[in-house]
Nucleic acid binder design. Structure first.
Lengths: 216, 216
DNA sequence: GGTCGGGACGTACGGTGTACGTAGACGGGA
DNA sequence: TCCCGTCTACGTACACCGTACGTCCCGACC
């Protein structure tokens, strides 16, 4: 019964999305959730798009970025990547909202700032650090979208209804890999790619003779 | 004035999306485009979702997969990845539609089949080939989404309105990299990550002593 | 000629975002 | 004390959305 404000509206939106999915969200539903008239929302939020920005910001600002500057840069990269992936765990149905809007607010810049700092301290020059950052963002975004099921997985989203590969003659490889394709351990998949990327970065660094590579 | 059919409807949808954006699409708009009543569409398409599936399928089936089985597997991977990226060039505003629906039709399976075959021939065992494929999909999806501007870029989408990094004191790294962040050559960014991934894959293969690595 | 199936279409319903007007609460001069 | 400006909650209204349903018409077949 406290007075309406932006934070309460955003919180209600997040909760509603998690409960009923991103498609179910509407100004009317949110207002009803808060026991309030629809147009009252517009006193605190200019429009729905800005509200979704708020949702993204709220979710993003809740991930825990525990950075240990004394750790090896490869571990720092791993930790930051995993922190990002936590979004998909804590707020799975908000994930699409988060990755699909580019924020100019601090919530969206802090992760980038930290990642860039880590990469610089690892020894990458400015240009390469930015490229590495962008590549990591692409990989993480793609992985999260697969995890929440908005992007092709080649694995059944509903494990109880296994998709039968249409024609073994047309798709022999897909058919032969049915068992591997049927299961998708998102954490293992994410870690696999993450390790590959970290390793590739280490190689890149090693090429300039700065440091050796680690972790066979 | 030929008779209405699914192909004409899908083609009109693709053209409309490219002309006015994916948000502007609606059954009414498409029907108007075809000079036809709204409900006539439903004689050929069960619902809007299926129509968007058709859009994805049509776009996907138009990309040219020229695979040369005699080429080195690293080049074959590169070529297939670039073929996928062509989507963002030929149908930029359809890209989001394409990557955000998982197709069980041949159009969606052919690329996976070919990629899997390539990875198998490169020497990866079944499980690792699937993991590599998934990692590549994640990277490509993330890259395409950045390219069409639906995912954070940390670069101004409209180059004419450069975003000023808010506070140099809060974001020193972002501030220091302003010039690198301001520009985003999507092709170069894509190639950078692609090269890194291919290289990482080669290393992975080399670890098992199957073949040496190439391209310094 | 009669019948029948399928495609084109109009209408209607319940939903959406939001522009606009109104009404009440509150606070600060006169 | 009265008045007035500002802020907030709210209802109404509009244009648009996807689509369920009923109707009409035309061509094919018996």
């Amino acid at each position: 019964m406290s007075t309406l404000n932006r934070a309460r509206i955003v919180a209600a939106a997040v909760e509603l999305i998690e409960r009923e999915g991103a498609d179910a969200i509407s100004m009317r539903r949110i207002a009803a959730e808060l026991g309030v008239g629809v147009m009252s929302l517009y006193n605190h939020v200019p429009n729905k798009s800005a509200l979704l920005d708020g949702v993204a910001e709220a979710v993003l600002s809740e991930i825990e970025f525990t950075d240990d500057p004394s750790a090896h840069w490869t571990d720092r990269v791993r930790i930051q990547a995993r922190a990002f992936r936590q979004i998909a765990h804590h707020y799975p149905r908000c994930t699409m909202v988060v990755v699909s809007r580019q924020l100019s607010s601090p919530a969206g810049m802090i992760p980038a700032e930290r990642a860039l700092a880590t990469l610089r301290e690892a020894g990458f020059d400015g240009e390469e650090a930015v490229r590495m950052l962008r590549m990591f963002i692409a990989y993480i975004v793609g992985s999260l979208l697969r995890e929440v099921g908005v992007t092709p997985t080649f694995a059944p989203v509903r494990p109880d209804v296994p998709v039968a590969v249409a024609d073994p003659a047309l798709f022999p490889e897909l058919y032969a890999r049915t068992s591997e394709l049927a299961a998708c351990d998102h954490e293992a998949e994410f870690e696999f790619g993450l390790e590959l990327l970290v390793q590739a970065m280490a190689v890149r660094l090693g090429e300039r003779g700065l440091t050796g590579r680690e972790q066979a």
